[in-house]
Computed example of a mutant assay.
Amino acid sequence: MGFLDFIFGAEKRQVEHYINNGAVILDVRSQREWDAGHIEDSVHIPLSELNNRIAEVKKLYKPVIACCASGIRSAKAAKFLNLNNIEATNGGGWVNLKKKL
């Protein structure tokens, strides 16, 4: 197993762990990106609105897998959610995440 396999294998296992624990997918892309395609049954809150809508996420009472287009915004979202006592992980880009599901 190479270094990249180790890193990305750990990421996949973490996403699987969250899914097995009833996690909700939180898509933090813009409305335009969301309208162009998204994971079925995911929740849409753009990253720019997350601070003002944190109560909505808390009311889900579930761990969160954040996703976006590439994984950059979802990493920021996951960090923000964790700082607000919400169990969250970065699922990366939504297209790749969809393949893992």
Rank of each mutant, 00 (worst) to 15 (best):
A36I: 04
R32P: 00
N51M: 10
L81Y: 07
K12A: 14
V64K: 01
P63A: 08
D41H: 15
R73D: 06
A75S: 08
L4H: 11
A36D: 12
I54N: 06
A75V: 00
F80G: 06
K79Q: 12
E56N: 13
K12D: 14
K76R: 12
N21Q: 06
V24P: 04
K12V: 12
A10E: 14
Q14T: 01
S74R: 00
K58F: 09
G9A: 13
F8T: 13
C68Y: 10
Q14R: 10
K59N: 15
N21P: 03
A10T: 13
R29P: 09
V43K: 11
N20G: 08
L47A: 02
I19W: 02
V28K: 01
L101T: 05
R29I: 10
V15T: 03
G92H: 01
E40L: 15
G37A: 09
V64Y: 05
G9L: 15
L81R: 13
L97G: 03
G22A: 09
N90E: 00
F8V: 07
I65H: 03
R13W: 01
E11D: 13
M1N: 10
P63E: 02
A23T: 11
H17M: 11
S42H: 03
H17Y: 13
E56V: 05
L97K: 06
K59T: 09
A77Y: 02
G22N: 11
C67T: 08
W34A: 10
I39C: 11
E40D: 14
G37I: 13
R53E: 11
R29Y: 07
Q14M: 10
D5G: 15
S48N: 09
K76T: 02
G71L: 07
G92P: 00
K76N: 09
N82T: 13
A23M: 05
L81W: 09
F6P: 05
N20H: 09
L47M: 09
K76L: 07
G91R: 00
G71Y: 00
